[in-house]
Design a protein around this nucleic acid. Sequence first.
DNA 1: GATGAATGAGTCTTCATTCAT
DNA 2: AATGAATGAAGACTCATTCAT
Lengths: 216, 216, 216, 216
Amino acid sequence: VSGEPAPLTRAERKRAEQAEELRTEIIDAAFIEFAENGYHQTTISDIATRLSISSGTFYNYFKNKRDIVDYVIDRLTSQLLAALAADNPADVASTAAEYHEQSKRIAGAVDAVLDADWRVPRMLLFEATSIDAAMTQRVLEIFDLARQAASAYLQNGVRRGFLRDDIDIGATADAITGLMISVAVRSLSSRLDSDARRRQRETVIELLMNGITARR
Amino acid sequence: VSGEPAPLTRAERKRAEQAEELRTEIIDAAFIEFAENGYHQTTISDIATRLSISSGTFYNYFKNKRDIVDYVIDRLTSQLLAALAADNPADVASTAAEYHEQSKRIAGAVDAVLDADWRVPRMLLFEATSIDAAMTQRVLEIFDLARQAASAYLQNGVRRGFLRDDIDIGATADAITGLMISVAVRSLSSRLDSDARRRQRETVIELLMNGITARR
Amino acid sequence: VSGEPAPLTRAERKRAEQAEELRTEIIDAAFIEFAENGYHQTTISDIATRLSISSGTFYNYFKNKRDIVDYVIDRLTSQLLAALAADNPADVASTAAEYHEQSKRIAGAVDAVLDADWRVPRMLLFEATSIDAAMTQRVLEIFDLARQAASAYLQNGVRRGFLRDDIDIGATADAITGLMISVAVRSLSSRLDSDARRRQRETVIELLMNGITARR
Amino acid sequence: VSGEPAPLTRAERKRAEQAEELRTEIIDAAFIEFAENGYHQTTISDIATRLSISSGTFYNYFKNKRDIVDYVIDRLTSQLLAALAADNPADVASTAAEYHEQSKRIAGAVDAVLDADWRVPRMLLFEATSIDAAMTQRVLEIFDLARQAASAYLQNGVRRGFLRDDIDIGATADAITGLMISVAVRSLSSRLDSDARRRQRETVIELLMNGITARR
DNA sequence: GATGAATGAGTCTTCATTCAT
DNA sequence: AATGAATGAAGACTCATTCAT
């Protein structure tokens, strides 16, 4: 027995690539349909027809309709984790100004991920919770991820002294997550352009930093 | 044909009351099922069985399955409008402190409406968007209502000088709406008790007023 | 709470009767189709079409296609038990002649049950084993029933001394069961008339009693 | 075009042998699956997977799924004919004792054929009748073969005077066939070992020869 | 000859809705 | 007004078979 799997021949490699390509096309087609008509209103045959493939072919690539959503959540989760973690360690900011900058950077990175295919967050926010309890759970877990990240950043700020030491970190992290989601929902509802989205992000961050009360 | 409807007899009145009662019971049963299993997973027969009525009777009270959601959105919208408008004219606050108090009052009133039957906001947030585009629109209109209300309050504060005059009112109203929704989602996800919800509301309002930045 | 279920009204009784009637018609239609085209080749829609009902109606009466077979096996098993046990206690025969008579009586009773709807044994013998393992098990259990009955009768005969005391009761009971089944298969394959079936039964019983060897 | 097929080269002969070998492996794999899961529950892909070949290859060796059963019935029929006819001409026995010996010999030969691959008779008895009418017919023809053979042996015995001259040869041949089948079913249901099978055969033959009635 | 992806016809099954009683 | 059986359109999913590589 060999410890290595047999290396792929050229033909096998090509076939595998084409398979991966079709898989991606199916995901895209599915999400276009989901976005246009909703998950429950979309049939496998709608997806297949859009690609001019047969409905049976769908099942060569995904176990069932639900499976495609699972697959995409996996992908999105890792993309978000990458965007968050990448070059943004929680403890890098040492002043409010640096924190402000970092927040804008992270918000921009998250926005970039979500904007790359806006149908994915749309699906997650508007439809996933209606698929079944397990899927709802998966979405809530993504929110939890955001909450934990926000907590870590807040803790750093409080420790360093540039954030108020009387804030309730948990509740504030919740609020920040909520703000992020609401910005996302807003973008999705009205399909803002990238500039409008940037302005909205910055307004929200500024609001978060300084509140709305007038200073004398 | 008579120009006037005949006045109701006692028996007719009683019958009408019973009908209204059953209509309410159907709504309640439906929302319990929707909350437990989701809109799409709930059948008319599930709802009927819960009430020991026949599925046919459902259709004497509602045009179809979707209709019951419409009906509830109508009810919720007017309840929210009542809670918001009632004793909270936008121009009543003249200091930041009064504004703070007013905000807590309004948030409490909204919470009371939502908490009276938490299944209703759950439905709206988690399922309505998956029913169809029109239903999604209706939910977004409720959000719009909140946005408009928030705008009015913010405008008053800026005009009176107790809120910063450099805030972007539209974006800030969006943010406030987002915060409200996220507080609601959080409550629904983890079923917080009334005290925990109050604390969360107040944290968020305080955050909104003063931001998270430490003051020297 | 009352110990009694509410008595049925006249209307309810009528409805229940009609339901039972349709249920029977569905069974009959199903078995006609099974007999003509085989279980696997028969679709629910074939059955429904034959009765001019919709395919959905089938599912108001049976859980699925397999369920109808289960239902019929239940019915057949109790009919066979009734036919066997009824007036044929194992110990009633005290001479070979009485035993011979009893055998013919029992064989006749079993034949009457099977002939009442020959499609049922056809189904069981020719198709049930192909449905699934559980169904095969159910059929084998019926054979076991026959084996046990045959054993009891043989034991009585050996004890009373009118049957050979050197026979292997288990193997002989197996053989008798096999003979019964083969007579049934033969009938089903060529649709013998009632007279031919009686002759066949008697030949087999005579053979069983005396063997084929010539006596000097 | 040449009038003669070109003689096979060594390489061609080898290839043909390998092809024949794979064909046999496919049959074996198919019957293992059929025995485990039933004909209808077995997919071509199940068979292919078991052999680590592709499903397409199956179709290079068999016209379709049903074809493999036909093929096996052909093979079994000729094996049974060989076993029966080989060294057992119908007129060889001239005494009851010789007849008894011959019966045991034939039964043993048949058993050897069936036992060589018990999945084949299992398939025929339990599944073939559910494939389609033509397949059922083929199985019944095999039974007919048995019936004809039994008739011939009985006739010889009656003519020679060592079998009773009052037996109904047709019905008795039927009964003998039924006994053979029932012995087979019994073996298949409980997977008896070769010794138990031999004992069962001999019991049945003895029963057939002498009946169960006690002789004074 | 081998491969396995693509095909699409074929079925079961569900369920919102209707309507005769 | 209540009932609940009947309806049948709709859709997910399977799998024998084909065929380009």
